[in-house]
C-alpha cells in the first residue's frame, strides 16, 4: 500500500514539473500533497498528515487558484461584425476567431470571447479585463486607449455609401477616426455611437452617406432598406489595415501574436482562411 502511494508520489512530482499550463500544475500539486499526506498517515505520523492535509491540500491550492484566476485564458473583446467575428447558430465563427483560436491552442490557453457594443469595447478594453481586441480592428479605431497593435493580416477599403443628394451630410461611427476623414470627404461629419444607429439614421434620410471600412460597410449593406439601397452607390476613399489590438500591459502577447500571424502567412493558412470567408 505504502509502495503504491510512494510510486504515485514520484509520478505526480514529475507530472507537476512537466506541466505547461499553470492551473493544471497547481491542481496536480494539490493531489501531490494529498498523496504525501496519505503516506504520512500510513507511516505512523498522523499529526503531520493532518497538518499537511489542511495546509497543502486545502489552503495552498486555493490560494494559487485565487491568484491565478486570470491565467490560462485569452480574453478577447470584440463586437459582432460578420465575417470577422460573429455568431452563427449559437457558435462563434469568423476570420479573427479562427486566427485567435489557433493562437490559443498554440499557447495552451482557453479562448474567452466577450461580445460588446461598439462604444463599450473601448471602455472595457482600457480596464484590466481584455487582453485582445478583435473584430475588424484597425489602428486609430480607438484613439483614446492607444493599445499595442499587431502586424496587419488583411487590407481593406475605406469606403462610402452615398445616396444622390445635394446636402452633403455624412455619418460615421465614433472612434472611426482615420486621418483626415473630413479632408478626404469634404463633408460635415456626424459621429454615431453604434453601427445600428448609423444605419437607422441613413434609412431615415438623416444622413446622406456612410463612411466606414469595408467589413462594417458589408454588414451595413444588408441592413439598409431596399429603397435606399437601390439609390446608393459605393465609392472608395482610402485604405485600412486590419490587425489585432493588444493591451498595453501584455507586451509578451504582442510578440506571440506577431509570430503567429507571420507563421500563418508563410504557410498559407491565412490566405486559406481569408478566402473561405471573403468570397
Amino acid at each position: 500500500m505504502l509502495t503504491f502511494f510512494l510510486l504515485l508520489l514520484l509520478a505526480l512530482s514529475i507530472s507537476v514539473v512537466l506541466q505547461r499550463r499553470l492551473l493544471n500544475a497547481v491542481i496536480l500539486l494539490g493531489v501531490f500533497s494529498l498523496t504525501s499526506s496519505t503516506i504520512y498517515f500510513l507511516a505512523g505520523a498522523p499529526d503531520v498528515a493532518v497538518t499537511e492535509g489542511a495546509i497543502g491540500v486545502a489552503f495552498v491550492t486555493f490560494i494559487y487558484v485565487l491568484a491565478l484566476s486570470d491565467q490560462g485564458k485569452l480574453h478577447v473583446i470584440t463586437e459582432e461584425i460578420p465575417p470577422f467575428f460573429f455568431q452563427e447558430r449559437g457558435e462563434i465563427t469568423g476570420i479573427d476567431h479562427e486566427i485567435l483560436l489557433k493562437l490559443a491552442e498554440k499557447l495552451n490557453l482557453d479562448l474567452e470571447v466577450e461580445f460588446l457594443s461598439h462604444p463599450e469595447t473601448a471602455v472595457r478594453f482600457s480596464g484590466r479585463r481584455g487582453k485582445v481586441l478583435a473584430g475588424a480592428y484597425f489602428s486609430r479605431y480607438c484613439e483614446t486607449i492607444d493599445p499595442l497593435t499587431s502586424t496587419t493580416y488583411h487590407r481593406a477599403q475605406l469606403a462610402r455609401i452615398s445616396a444622390e443628394s445635394p446636402s452633403k451630410r455624412t455619418g460615421t461611427i465614433s472612434g472611426l477616426n482615420v486621418t483626415g476623414l473630413e479632408e478626404i470627404s469634404g463633408d460635415r461629419i456626424r459621429y454615431f455611437d453604434s453601427l445600428n444607429e448609423l444605419i437607422e439614421a441613413y434609412n431615415q434620410e438623416k444622413v446622406d452617406s456612410i463612411i466606414a471600412d469595408s467589413a462594417r460597410l458589408r454588414y451595413a449593406l444588408n441592413r439598409i432598406n431596399a429603397m435606399r439601397k437601390s439609390s446608393s452607390e459605393i465609392t472608395q476613399i482610402g485604405e485600412v489595415e486590419y490587425s489585432f489590438a493588444i493591451s498595453r500591459e501584455e507586451p509578451d502577447l504582442l510578440d506571440k501574436v506577431n509570430d503567429h500571424l507571420n507563421e500563418l502567412e508563410s504557410n498559407g493558412q491565412l490566405k486559406e482562411i481569408l478566402s473561405r470567408y471573403l468570397r
Binding site: 499529526d47 498528515a49 493532518v50 497538518t51 489542511a54 489552503f59 486555493f62
Partner: peptide, 24 residues
C-alpha cells in the same frame, strides 16, 4: 483538534488552519 492536541493527533497548527479554511 487544537483542544485535544495533548492526547490525540492534531495540534494548534492544524486546528488553526482548519478553522481558517472554514472561513475561506
Amino acid at each position: 483538534l487544537a483542544y485535544s492536541a495533548h492526547r490525540g493527533p492534531g495540534g494548534g497548527f492544524a486546528g488553526g488552519v482548519i478553522v481558517g479554511s472554514g472561513v475561506l
